[in-house]
């Protein structure tokens, strides 16, 4: 008894720390469970199916009614009959203004607000996991989803294109031709670039998600921010604002399809994406770290 009485609170704390498993800095388990949650949801399956349907529709439509030669029409459509890889590029270009951002907004907007809305956030926070780590895992999962959805669209596009139109040499925007292997690499590069752009948008979604307990509000807010950015970017009278817009350099992925590759445009886009990601991720951290979680 006397021994127990002599125990100081500090000694108890150190005792407890020795007994409990030390929280690891990098444990894939939390991230994996988050990914299982995202990729296991039926609504997300439905969203991914819609994303994958677009390249299928494009490929089939072009197969049945090939565009007459001499260009025109939406970007990259004229090249589809020459090379199946253009199905992927056409699909990415078509989905970039709305579908891809919508998918990323749905996931990132749901990240915190979704848990708060279903009342699971406070239980999540009772586990010995730091809030910063929770936020980092949520953001990482949203980024993985962004890359996955971009690769899904491109992958289905390449597959449909190869089945219906075949591969072969690819004509770049500069009118030069490159081999099929390099063409696939360039399409992968486009996916990586667009994935990074969407990650910067996911940071905006994460911040919006930390502001509210209504996931739908965070999603709509993120979409409004993105679409407004696209709209403002098309008004020439406010060109002083354009360099500060989230989506200003998204279409720069075309610089990967020039010969030689225009790294100036790509670098500008990557820096812009990094700036947005840093600002909004730290804003989400500031908001979430100091937030009173009541639900």
């Amino acid at each position: 008894m006397s021994v127990a009485e002599a125990v100081t609170p500090a000694a108890v704390a150190s005792e407890v720390r020795a007994v409990l498993p030390r929280p690891r800095m990098f444990s894939p388990r939390f991230l994996l469970s988050e990914l299982m949650l995202i990729f296991g949801r039926r609504r997300n399956w439905a969203g991914l199916a819609v994303l994958a349907a677009i390249p299928v529709i494009i490929a089939v439509a072009v197969k049945f009614d090939p565009p007459s030669g001499g260009g025109g029409g939406p970007d990259f459509f004229a090249g589809i009959t020459e090379n199946g890889l253009f199905v992927a590029l056409a699909a990415l270009t078509v989905e970039l203004p709305l579908f891809l951002p919508l998918a990323v907004a749905a996931i990132s907007g749901d990240a915190i607000a979704g848990e708060a809305n279903t009342g699971t956030l406070r239980y999540l926070l009772t586990t010995p996991v730091h809030r910063t780590r929770l936020l980092a895992v949520k953001y990482a999962a949203a980024c993985i989803f962004a890359f996955a959805s971009t690769l899904l669209v491109a992958g289905v596009g390449v597959l449909m294109g190869l089945i219906l139109f075949g591969g072969g040499d690819m004509t770049l925007l500069s009118g030069r031709q490159i081999g099929f292997g390099e063409g696939v690499l360039r399409v992968l590069g486009v996916c990586a670039y667009l994935g990074i752009c969407l990650c910067s948008m996911a940071a905006v979604g994460l911040f919006a998600s930390s502001l509210t307990e209504q996931p739908i509000g965070a999603m709509i807010g993120t979409m409004i921010f993105t679409v407004a950015s696209f709209i403002l970017d098309n008004i020439p009278q406010i060109d002083w604002l354009h360099p500060y817009l989230l989506t200003h350099s998204w279409m720069n992925f075309g610089d990967l399809l020039r010969d030689p590759v225009n790294f100036t445009g790509l670098r500008e886009g990557l820096l812009r994406a990094a700036a947005y990601a840093v600002v909004f991720a730290t804003a989400a951290w500031a908001r979430f770290g100091g937030k009173d979680v009541t639900s």
Binding site: G71, G72, L173, G175, G254, G265
Partner: peptide
């Protein structure tokens, strides 16, 4: 090379050959 969004026009002189390429029209 005049760079446009997802498009490019090239004006190339090489010796006596002169080429004008337009990716948008594919001409």
């Amino acid at each position: 090379a005049l760079l446009g969004t997802l498009g490019e026009s090239d004006f190339i002189t090489n010796g006596r050959d002169v080429w004008v390429w337009n990716s948008r029209d594919n001409t």
